[in-house]
């Protein structure tokens, strides 16, 4: 089975918080609730799930019908993640663009929240993207061969053609995912603008 034969829609993207001093995780809970009230990010926003008690997990999650946003601590690093669950476009690239767009928008909104007074920032030189669908995209060399170039091309376009370093998780039981590192770090709003232009 190839991803071409059936387009994966359970994609995810995570961008990491910059620096190593982070705000109290509890602060994300009222912010996510406010996002529901004000419909700050795309999707049918349903509820907030608090998993601060689980180390290296989704931490604080904004549950939505189409996918979940999270100030996520998976693998021990804090970042804004978007986990798409359903819907999406009819091509892998369209889905990837939508998922990255949602993650970046959420990161931008979170960083701009007045609660943090400008102290929270996100890196734009490092991302994790992947597919939570072992049927169409198991974590295998074949999936990497197939999706790796598309992911690389997408991020290369997004980051202005800069060289990218790709790293994949080596445990075949894990979801297929690629850790990307770039040498440049554009402003978050610039990235969002470029994404809209893609």
């Amino acid at each position: 089975m190839t991803v071409e034969a059936k387009t994966a829609n359970r994609l995810f993207c995570k961008c990491f918080v910059a620096g190593d001093v982070y705000p109290d995780d509890a602060l994300y809970i009222p912010i996510f609730h406010r996002w529901i009230q004000e419909q700050t990010v795309p999707g049918l926003l349903v509820d907030v799930a608090d998993y601060q008690h689980v180390p290296r997990g989704p931490n604080v999650m904004l549950i939505a019908h189409e996918g979940h946003y999270a100030m996520d601590r998976t693998a021990g690093r804090l970042g804004m993640a978007y986990y798409q669950k359903r819907g999406g476009g009819d091509s892998f690239e369209a889905n990837l663009q939508a998922v990255v767009s949602n993650a970046l928008l959420a990161a931008e909104q979170m960083a701009g929240d007045k609660v943090f007074g400008g102290s929270l920032a996100f890196r734009t030189d490092e991302f994790v993207v992947g597919v939570d669908d072992r049927l169409v995209a198991p974590n295998s060399p074949e999936t990497l061969d197939q999706l790796g170039p598309q992911i690389q091309a997408f991020f290369s376009g997004l980051l202005g053609g800069t060289a990218l370093e790709l790293q994949v998780a080596d445990d075949p039981r894990m979801p297929f995912q690629v850790h990307l590192r770039a040498e440049i770090s554009p402003a978050l709003e610039d990235l969002r603008e470029r994404l809209c232009a893609l």
Partner: peptide, 20 residues
């Protein structure tokens, strides 16, 4: 990971539960 919110929950009846 694929269908829920990435958390599995052990219940008071030795079950597991997945939400959302």
């Amino acid at each position: 990971e694929e269908y829920s919110d990435r958390i599995a929950h052990v219940t008071t009846r030795q079950d597991f539960q997945l939400h959302f």
